[in-house]
């Protein structure tokens, strides 16, 4: 399971402030903390308050790379901001993201090829977020087909079914879990599947419990990556245990510690 830390996001006030004031220490500390807690990659989003997202993205990538060498997941709705990040990354990046719209896919996949990156494809398009499994699979198939046209390996593609907060679209959650399972069947080798986990608990007051319960169910349905808060220790413990039960790691009495020693 690829754990992508979500905390370097300008949506959070303290991060936005650190970006604005160019406080390298705060950003690097946040990066190191997440990696030490088990993040395999770090999501980077300049956030809604950024006045110059291109410059901010470049600064974030450069600052973080001085502290850690994990993969970076460049998160922006703007291709030019992503490209600015791609120019600065030293290791293989993950582009976050493209929708299933043809124009968007063509722009983003061209960047994927140019920079040998990996990419997240979100099962939505201009018409909005799908509200059933069939529509999700249709959109995901469109992404897979387009990626193949571009010669992108299916293992480099992360398909995101788009999580609904449980207090908004409760009837969607089962559809989403089933979509994850079906996404894995779309081609061989199977594409990766990914969720932005914290969405599930948006606006609720039991966030950690909802996050970790959904995560274990999603892992059982074939989820291979998630953008999440690695500092939530119970969440990470649940993830490690779910993978153990699926025989992805060999049991020993100290299996939590063993996983963390990887």
């Amino acid at each position: 399971m690829l754990v992508i830390g979500e905390l370097i996001n300008g949506m959070f006030r303290d991060v936005a402030k650190a970006i604005q004031n160019r406080e390298v220490d705060i950003i690097q500390h946040l990066a190191e903390e997440q990696v030490n807690a088990g993040a395999d990659a770090l999501d980077i989003n300049t956030g809604p308050y950024s006045k110059d997202p291109k410059a901010d993205m470049k600064w974030l990538v450069e600052s973080i790379q001085k502290a850690t060498n994990v993969s970076l997941c460049l998160d922006s709705t703007r291709a030019d901001v992503i490209e600015e990040g791609l120019k600065a990354v030293k290791s293989r990046a993950i582009i976050n993201s493209t929708s299933a719209d043809v124009e968007k896919m063509e722009t983003i996949f061209a960047l994927v090829k140019k920079h040998k990156a990996q990419v997240i494809g979100i099962a939505m398009d201009k018409s909005g977020v799908p509200n059933d499994k069939a529509k999700r699979i249709e959109l995901a198939s469109r992404i897979v087909a387009k990626a193949m046209d571009f010669g992108i390996a299916s293992e480099d593609l992360f398909l995101d079914p788009i999580l609904f907060p449980v207090n908004v679209g409760q009837e969607q959650e089962k559809e989403i879990l089933e979509s994850i399972r079906e996404f894995r069947q779309l081609c061989t080798p199977a594409p990766n599947t990914l969720v932005g986990l914290s969405n599930i608990s948006q606006g609720t007051n039991t966030r950690s419990l909802l996050n970790r319960t959904f995560l274990t169910m999603a892992v059982a349905n074939g989820l291979t990556a998630a953008i999440l808060d690695p500092l939530d220790k119970e969440l990470m413990n649940a993830l490690i245990t779910a993978e153990l039960i699926l025989n992805k790691n060999i049991y020993c009495d100290s299996f939590l510690e063993a996983y963390r020693k990887r």
Binding site: I250, Y251, C252, D253, S254, E257, A258, K261
Partner: peptide, 13 residues
């Protein structure tokens, strides 16, 4: 026993 092998490696380390 692979489980004990792994556990012992952890204990030693």
């Amino acid at each position: 026993d692979v489980n004990i092998a792994k556990q012992l490696n952890i204990l030693v380390s």
